[in-house]
Amino acid sequence: MFHSGLWAVFARRRLGDQAVVLTYHRVIDEQRRPRPDSNPGIIVSADTFDMQMRALRDHLNPVSLADFHAHVEHGKPLPPKSCLVTFDDGWLDNYEVAFPILQKYKIPAVVFIPLDYIDNNIMFWQEEMLMWLTTLLSAGDADSLQRLASLLNKHESAASITIHDIRAHVVAMKDSSDDVITEALQSLRQELGKNGEPAHYNRYLNWQQVKEMRTAGIDFASHALSHRILCRMSDERCREELQQSRTLLEQQLGEPVRAIAYPNGDHDERVMRKTREAGYTLAFATTSGLYSQADEPLSIPRMNVHENNSRDKALFLCATINLL
């Protein structure tokens, strides 16, 4: 479709009155860094990201958060084939790897940051749990594998456990309560962390890096405080996550913050109502699709980008306009 010219025809038609919002998480230079403990579905390699930003510059019209906000709230027209680049979570690699590439191609972007993780050394529970469980797998001895099998409820097949089994276990844990997840992590830390953490690359931005990127034109917005799912919280806790994250970010940046990306994309009518009450006028989800001005501004769809759905230019550009 791309090489025949049909992509350009579809792009004009599909994006005539719509915009595409792309979701990135991690951009990894794997030749320089140890492999991170993140799901492959949130990782793009540095070379792939460079290709993608060049493709956006050449074939679409990247816009800033301010431009997108003016379009959504005030009806200001966007250029044809508009695209907004977003990052969730505020990973350190956004600064070390993605930021120079964005500057290279002069691509505006917005990073949604969970305030509890900025400028400290804690990890998301998914990455930490996968890190500890992978440590047992890497040890390879019978006792470690048997302990891992017990944790994964695979008692009869300890020797055949793979990284895919561990990833599946972590994904399944997403349905558990916060208390269950916290207890499981504390147990792993006590059992396996006696000699410190294994080497990893699961860190987040600090405020100096945030402010440097902001000075260079990268926008920042809220991703709540704890990155826990808002739908599962009490009214009071949900309100606190929404309001305090916005207040703290405004204090650090010295400018209004009116946009948020829901942690994990999860939201419902209650969360949307509280998001509006907390002063946000834009809220980004993880549902796939294109955005038109008739859509709900507190449930903006986005296209998730990762290595497997975007490894070459044609595939990436087809994915951006929801053709795959």
Rank of each mutant, 00 (worst) to 15 (best):
A261P: 12
T286M: 11
G279A: 01
A259C: 12
E255Q: 13
S245I: 06
L253S: 09
E277V: 07
Q244C: 10
T247N: 14
I260E: 05
D268F: 11
L242Q: 03
L253K: 07
A283Y: 01
E240R: 13
R246A: 15
S245Y: 06
D266Q: 07
A283D: 03
V271Y: 01
R246T: 02
V271W: 02
L248I: 15
Y280V: 02
L253W: 02
A278L: 03
R273F: 14
G279C: 04
F284D: 01
A261G: 11
Q251C: 10
E241V: 08
Y280C: 05
G254N: 06
P263T: 06
D268T: 05
E250G: 06
D266E: 11
S245C: 11
V257R: 13
R270Q: 14
A283L: 11
N264V: 09
A278W: 00
Q251P: 13
L242P: 01
R276I: 11
R270A: 15
G265L: 08
Q252F: 10
T281D: 07
R246D: 04
N264W: 12
R246Y: 05
K274G: 14
M272K: 12
R276L: 14
V271S: 00
H267L: 09
A285V: 10
A259R: 13
M272W: 07
V257F: 10
A285F: 04
L242T: 00
G254L: 09
E250F: 09
V257N: 11
T275W: 01
E255V: 10
A283H: 02
D268I: 08
Q251E: 15
V271F: 01
Y262G: 03
R276P: 10
Y280W: 05
E240N: 12
Q252E: 13
A261H: 03
T247S: 13
R273Y: 04
R270C: 07
Q244N: 12
L249T: 04
H267G: 07
P256M: 08
L282Q: 06
P256R: 03
P263D: 06
N264A: 15
T275R: 01
E241Y: 00
A259H: 09
T275Y: 01
S245E: 07
Q243H: 12
G265M: 05
R273N: 10
A285Q: 01
L248R: 15
A259Q: 07
A285M: 08
A285W: 05
M272R: 15
T247Q: 14
L282Y: 02
